[in-house]
Every structure is written in structure tokens, then in C-alpha cells.
Design a protein around this nucleic acid. Structure first.
Lengths: 155, 155
DNA sequence: GAAATATAGTTACATATGAAACTATATTAG
DNA sequence: CTAATATAGTTTCATATGTAACTATATTTC
């Protein structure tokens, strides 16, 4: 029997990186639409809010680490969220370079509304899988993530 | 025991769409670097070439269908590949709007060189998995793709 | 067989993105 | 204590990307 590890021909549709990319883009686009339609938030803005919903009073740099966003993307998302009043910034007393960020009341309100939408979208996606398959998927993605970024042992 | 389907709290790191996105971006970026360093090709240019390596003399529209690229992205990739001499264009005799695209000798040469690099990158990624896990992954991604884009029953 | 409509592909424009330069504050070395 | 270096975050600039408008050819309708 042929071992897939011996492949010498490339079929794009069977090529894992390609399949991952198409799947991820399809999923992300669908979800981004939900956030945008309901609250006018981009996926980057939402990620920042999501992290602030889990962790109060953290810095932009920490947000970048939690969200896998680069610092420019964080800076822009933070600027727009400050502007729209979803988050607030407070200078750090110990270190003048840092600024502590947190959700405002408005931001918390939006956050509480989006969480169920996001979880619903996730549930909808995994509804195609049994509980066992879902668990498998978690494990497989964990392994792939390690293989793809061996350095980043944070997660 | 808690059923994950009952989640009411959102943890970004456990959120499937987010994990998919980060994984896909990490993988894609690594591979894009390979193509770019070795041949100065973007991932879009490479995808067009990959499809032309599998299917000779197809149109830009068909390339778009095979690669999940929109027509503007295909148009741009095609223009640059014509320019760099990797592909050639021939007007269709039956339909003046269509143009048939195919790899040139140079394009074929590059294609033959990239295929093993691409397959090697894929192998490296899935080397973290057993053969059984790899098969599971294929099945799970198939199901997720269907759930994410129920319309696109092409694949 | 002309007018209306559809399709293939390109161009233009507005916006998003990333890399590098920059500002301001902290820390380290001597 | 001052100079050199590091870090947090922003701005600038060049490029990438998506949407909509456009051109050219085909097809359909009457």
C-alpha cells in the first residue's frame, strides 16, 4: 500500500498548508462578518477586547503576546478602541513607557454581548464533530502548533 | 463532568477559530518564506503555478476556482508570472474573452524544484503526527470545511 | 439582428498591513 | 552621573488587498 509520506506529486487540494489556509480564511471571514455587522468591530479590535475581557489592566505588549498580533496591529486596534470608547488607558506609575488598558463599561457591555455570539459560531463549526472528534481535533491542533512554531512554548 | 458544548466563558487560546487562524498563519508564513527566498514567488503566484502544474491550459477563472482565490488576485498573480516568464498565455479560439494559461519551460523547471520543497514542508509539519493521527486530521478538516462552507460542495 | 444581459478579465481607488524609523522612558555600564 | 543600550508604543512609508467600476467579447431575448 502507498505511504502518503512518500508523495512526490503535489495536489493543491490535498496539501495540508493550503487546506488549513482556506479553512481558516473561510471561518475567520464568517466570524469577522458577525462582529462587524453587530458592532462594527474588526477581528483585531475584537481580539484585543477578548483578551481584556479575560485579563484586566494589561499592557499593549502583553496583548500582543496573548493575541499573536504584532505591536503595530495592537497599537492601531487600541487607538481605535480608545476612540470608540470601548477601552480606557491609564499610565503606569512604575514605568512611564507602559500604559495599562482595560474595558470601559461600554466595552464590557459589548464584550458580554459578543461572547455568546462567538461561542455560538464555534459551536456551529464543531457541531459537525462528535465529542470524541472534537477532543481529537484539540490534540491534533496542539501538536501541529508545536511543530509549526517549536520556539513558542508559551502555549 | 462539564460538557465543552456548554461553555459560557470565552478563552481566546481555546477558541477554535482563533487557534485555526494562528496555526494557519504560522504555517503559511513559514512556507511563503521558503518560496520567496528560493524563487522570489509570493504564495499567490505559487498557487497559480501549482494549479498549472497539475492542469495544463486552463483559464484564469478556473484557476480561481481551484485555488480559492478571487479573480483580482488571480489576475495580478497571472500578470506578474507572465512578466517573469513563468507562464504563457494563449487566446482561446472559441471564446475571445478567455485566455488559456500554462507553464513555460522556465515555469516547469521552477515548479519541479518547488514541489519537493513544498512536500518537505508538509512532511515536516505532519511528522509530529502518527499515520493514524494524520488520517484523522484529514477527516476532521474535511468535516470542518463542510461545516464552514456548506455551499461549496465542489470539494 | 439589434438591444439587453451575462461572462472573462483588468484597472482604479480606497483601505489594510508590515517593516523600519522614530519618540519617550528605563536600565545598564563605566 | 553620564553615555550607551534596551524597551514600550506610535508614526511613516511602501506594498498588498478587496470592492467596485470598467472593457471587451458572448449569449439571450424579442
Amino acid at each position: 500500500m502507498p505511504d502518503p509520506a512518500d508523495k512526490t506529486v503535489l495536489r493543491l487540494r490535498e496539501f495540508l498548508p493550503y487546506r488549513l489556509s482556506v479553512l481558516s480564511n473561510t471561518v475567520s471571514r464568517g466570524i469577522a462578518d458577525l462582529y462587524d455587522r453587530a458592532f462594527g468591530l474588526s477581528i483585531w479590535q475584537w481580539r484585543v477586547m477578548a483578551v481584556l475581557g479575560e485579563n484586566a489592566a494589561i499592557t499593549a505588549t502583553e496583548i500582543g503576546q496573548f493575541t499573536a498580533m504584532d505591536k503595530v496591529a495592537v497599537s492601531r486596534a487600541v487607538a481605535s478602541l480608545l476612540d470608540s470608547g470601548h477601552i480606557a488607558r491609564e499610565a503606569s506609575l512604575e514605568d512611564g513607557r507602559r500604559a495599562l488598558l482595560s474595558l470601559t463599561a461600554k466595552g464590557k457591555d459589548v464584550y458580554e454581548q459578543i461572547v455568546p455570539i462567538a461561542l455560538g459560531a464555534e459551536r456551529n463549526l464543531v457541531s459537525a464533530l462528535s465529542a470524541e472528534e472534537h477532543a481529537q481535533l484539540d490534540g491534533l491542533m496542539e501538536k501541529l502548533a508545536r511543530a509549526a512554531a517549536p520556539d513558542r512554548d508559551l502555549w
